[in-house]
Amino acid sequence: MRPFDYQRADSRDHAGQLTAGEHAQAIAGGTNLLDLMKLQVETPQTLVDINRLGHREIEDRDDGGMWIGALATNTETAVHPRVRSDYPVLARAILAGATQQLRNRATTGGNLCQRTRCYYFTNIDQPCNKREPGSGCGAIEGIAKLHAVLGASSQCIATYPGDMAVAMSALDAQVEIAGADGGTRTVPVRDFHRLPGDTPWKDNVLEPGDLITGVTLPPPVKGRQLYRKVRERSSYAFALCSVAAIVAMDGDTIARADLAFGGLAHKPWHDPEVGQVLIGQKPGADLFNRAADVLLRDARGYGENDFKIPLARRTLAAVLAEATGVEL
């Protein structure tokens, strides 16, 4: 690990000042950042410990929604009684990720900001436009099993690795961000992460000095909430494909279908047109296939990850079948 200056922030403004510097980074749980610092993928000159800022609360909101503080651990969120009862897709998504030891340290804000597990990104001897702009992308013609089939660019085909944010995307949660200028702004989780485009080094919309203070969950809605994660072993592995779903029926037709997908793109993938195919229709294999056609209309594989396209189709169908009570 490269030497760095360790600073403990004692207020939000203090943290904003400290992290606004060019080579400064905030540390909360540190489970991803310290891993990357050991690999010298991340080489901050100043590490700003934000663990004493509060922002750990998980609370009810007046409108019936919930507030999840940025420093609440993944465990605290997943085991919270109201998260379990009203937002089970979120509890399930968190429990499907990492290990208990990691979830006990990982935080809401850090989890949103976790970086890709692309093998070229984490190996400083390999080209990677995300880590070293202009050095090329090793994955496009290389080892690409974990990589994106939706929304990738000629610069980067990395995936966002998390589960929690996929559920938050399906729930249409909102990220609250405190800026270095003292103001706050709210960004939907669906717009928080970016597609790589020509600037793959920017994972999300945060600017220097920005700090996530928490995430707001909207009031709970009626319907089945499911999180299905497909991976290479049954525990402690990243998603090849995951689906977060909130699906409600009205009689024998689908009334609501809020869907988000993990493991397919540089961000949790939410495409409102997929839900529109389903709403007002009777569930069944043909309908689920039409929804998958829309989801995957621009999908492109890179050899090793070609399997993700049919896998996403089947995972979507399986989740919709379970949510609507249809036998496939």
């Binding site: 360790y6 749980g29 310290l34 891993d35 050991k38 410990d49 465990t75 030891q101 990691l102």
Partner: peptide, 27 residues
């Protein structure tokens, strides 16, 4: 592994199990 993958370094901090390799002592 020193990267939070193997769990050999598991300890309890304030009663909660964590990977001691992925946290700085000064924290």
């Amino acid at each position: 592994c020193d990267h939070g993958q193997c769990g050999a370094c598991t300890v309890m901090v304030n009663g909660v199990r964590i990977n001691s390799c992925l946290t700085l002592a000064v924290m």
